[in-house]
Design a protein around this nucleic acid. Structure first.
Lengths: 117, 117
DNA sequence: GTGCGTACTTACCTTGAGGTCAGTGGGGGC
DNA sequence: GCCCCCACTGACCTCAAGGTAAGTACGCAC
């Protein structure tokens, strides 16, 4: 799908379309979710988002950065140190994702309920 | 990506994860968005979601149906007639998508603003 | 009788997102 | 001396989502 970083496809049919374009990428919501709770170093994110490869993590972080969702801060020190955090825009995105997350949580509960029978 | 209809991947890391799993599929948000405004026949949806092929429309509608988002009603008449509409769950999903759509709309406006300079 | 519209299904093919793995260049632990 | 950790980058490969095109069975219009 069009996980294209800044200005993925365009033109968008509607706002949802534009939002999904930013979200699009296997790990992006998880990354955003992780960054909502704390600013993180690369390695921390890697651990917080179980399953991502380093390549794809870097890639999706760059795309989120290009879309103005994530801020990247490089500390030029002996062992490299890079910190990621949400921008204000990213924070707003996260807030907008809140209801969706709540809906999903209800679905998870319903699914589990059904699973147990 | 894992556009797997009912129970796409599981287990989910969080609610967002579970929600995105349902949404996942190139045209699904557009389909849901279209169905929010009106119940539609297959051909109508085809026209409302510009760019989908018949195959993929059918496919994603079936997945949404499997996830309990969309209701499919077959009228057994001379020229086939099938109507699609949102279930209550689907309606809730759509509501949950509202803030995200609003966020995307703001982004579209900002993008356009930047585009004009 | 040719063609369009309805709602699909099926076979085949392309594309690119994501996975795997190896390399980089220093620092610190044992 | 060896290996891990930091934060990446680049080459290569896979796989499945999605695109394309054709077929189905029926009715109506012209």
């Amino acid at each position: 799908m069009g996980a294209g970083g800044a200005l993925g496809k365009q033109p968008y049919v509607c706002g949802l379309d534009a939002a999904v374009d930013v979200i699009d990428g296997k790990w992006k919501v998880l990354i955003i979710w992780a960054l909502n709770h704390q600013r993180c170093r690369f390695g921390e994110l890697r651990r917080l988002v179980p399953g991502v490869s380093e390549k794809v993590l870097t890639q999706q972080l760059r795309e989120l950065e290009g879309d103005g969702i994530v801020h990247r801060e490089i500390h030029d020190v002996k062992p490299p140190k890079v910190e990621y955090s949400l921008t204000e825009l990213g924070d707003e995105l996260n807030t907008a994702l809140g209801p969706l997350g709540a809906w999903g949580k209800r679905r998870m509960a319903a699914l589990e309920e059904a699973g147990r029978g």
